[in-house]
Amino acid sequence: MTTLAITPMARPWRQPSVIPGFGLTFGFAMVYLSLIVLIPIALLILRTTQLSWQEYWAIATSERVVAALRLSFGAAVIAAAVNTVFGTIIAWILVRYEFPGKRLLDAIVDLPFALPTAVAGITLTAIFAKNGWVGQFLEPLGIKVAYSALGVVIALIFIGLPFVVRTLQPVILELERETEEAAATLGASRPQTIFRIVLPTLVPAMLTGFVLALARGVGEYGSVVFIAGNLPYRTEIAPLLIVIRLTEFDYNGATAIATIMLAIAFVMFLTINLIQAWARRRFGYV
């Protein structure tokens, strides 16, 4: 009797399916993931183990590293937040309204994807420098963009924008018009409809866009090094500090900073994923 009960339980995940090929695709995915992602990361962590805990802790808490990490993550969070707001508005007008030049604007959104990041960094620096197109107007106001933390944020906003727009567009397209009409017949004003009905339905997608923009911002190097000025303790980002350590042949120092970044990013993304999973369970959609 026990054997009867156990036999079908032996491989509980192998259900007969009309969509075959699980074994093949799963195997391929695992090999691929191992080669591209897991093995490099494992080597990175392995390398860090050459350091003792005291050495590791000393690197992790050194003033320069802490400042760089704070700038990297802080600027990435601010930029992703700004992108979430403006990216949502841009996605909204691209989906909901017809206007001349719409296709062009739609295409421009993708430019930060395609443009080499160094080109973006140099261009932004030129515009926001003291004597640049925009910088000359900000300078008298006491706002310094180029060679400051603000410049880092602006570079990250630039490169993160498409992630939010492209995440939200299909979701806005799927919104049921009737839901907004229902709110209107119930007496809700347009702002009430936007803030109580539309935005709450978009929150999960906005969160996804935020995560993508954040991930991109944390790892960004090319555009930031041109606009930041790279002053240690002030405008030096963590990826740059890793490169500096490498050029000093301090491989252990570089990997230590890398693993700290990895750990912080992992915890952040896991938290956001859990929030999304909770929302999905609760509302039955993402």
Binding site: E178, A182, P200
Partner: peptide, 30 residues
């Protein structure tokens, strides 16, 4: 908004992120 009509849509058009209670209360809360 000012016509005060009750409209029921074919696909229901319920507010998915609100409980049944909040759905029904919406017109009074706004």
């Amino acid at each position: 908004q000012d016509r005060n009509v009750g409209f029921v849509f074919q696909n229901y058009a319920l507010f998915r992120h609100m409980s049944v209670f909040e759905n029904i209360a919406f017109g009074l809360r706004v």
